[in-house]
Design a binder for these strands. Structure first.
Length: 215
DNA sequence: GTTGAGCGTT
């Protein structure tokens, strides 16, 4: 048991990970570090990115060293507005937290009645969904776990809507031979609109306020 | 350029 005091890298069981949801897509780990570091000793912050696009998925993982600091961060930073979005901080289902954490969702399976009519997956996703959206066979050819496809499916929903609206809008413009004068003015350089105004944003320095006051 | 329920890399 005694490893001469050398425990190696910080194990997960020795740290407490927090899940930060509702994070803006452009929020980086550095931004979160500036907030969470004030509440305690942050070991590391990881922001999972999409394997295809590489963009942030909208959530991050903040790993604290002590539970009391992590709990304080949840109580203080939970609901705080970051980058224009109110983030949601809660314990992640990982490490020692997964055994005790009841926030967000029930991890235990005791709430699963067997006698009652079980409710299987009401929504069944076929690969046709991906093909319908125009995805290549390269992606569906790979064997991903159900969890992975589930996540990808949820993410693709927003993209699907965006592409659909964009396509419909374009088709409408195309079909419409006669363009309304408003459209012409909007796309005409003569009509200076605020949309093309110089986005000179004053670099407002961040005010280092102690979000987590010392006990 | 967009979107918004959730659980992750070495």
């Amino acid at each position: 048991m005694s490893r001469l005091g050398r425990y190696g890298p910080p194990a997960v069981r020795d740290s407490y990970s927090l899940l930060v949801l509702n994070v803006s897509f452009r929020t980086t780990a550095d931004d979160l570090l500036a907030l969470f570091d004030r509440c305690g000793e942050v070991l590391d912050i990881r922001i999972p990115r999409d394997r295809r696009t590489g963009d942030s998925r909208g959530f991050a993982f903040v790993r604290y060293k002590y539970e009391d600091e992590a709990q304080k961060a949840v109580d203080k930073l939970d609901g705080r507005t970051v980058d224009g979005r109110d983030i949601m901080v809660q314990f992640a289902k990982y490490g020692p937290n997964a055994e005790r954490i009841h926030k967000g969702r029930i991890v235990e399976e005791i709430s699963k009645p067997k006698g009652r009519s079980r409710s299987p997956s009401p929504k069944r996703r076929y690969r046709a969904d991906y093909r319908d959206r125009g995805y290549r066979d390269d992606y569906r050819d790979r064997h991903y776990p159900d969890d992975y496809q589930d996540r990808e499916y949820r993410r693709s929903r927003s993209i699907e809507r965006y592409e659909r609206e964009r396509y419909q809008e374009k088709g409408y413009r195309r079909r419409s031979r006669s363009i309304s004068p408003d459209y012409d003015r909007r796309h005409r350089k003569n009509g200076s609109y605020s949309l093309t105004a110089s986005p000179s944003r004053p670099r407002d320095e961040r005010s280092p306020r102690s979000r987590c006051p010392s006990t």
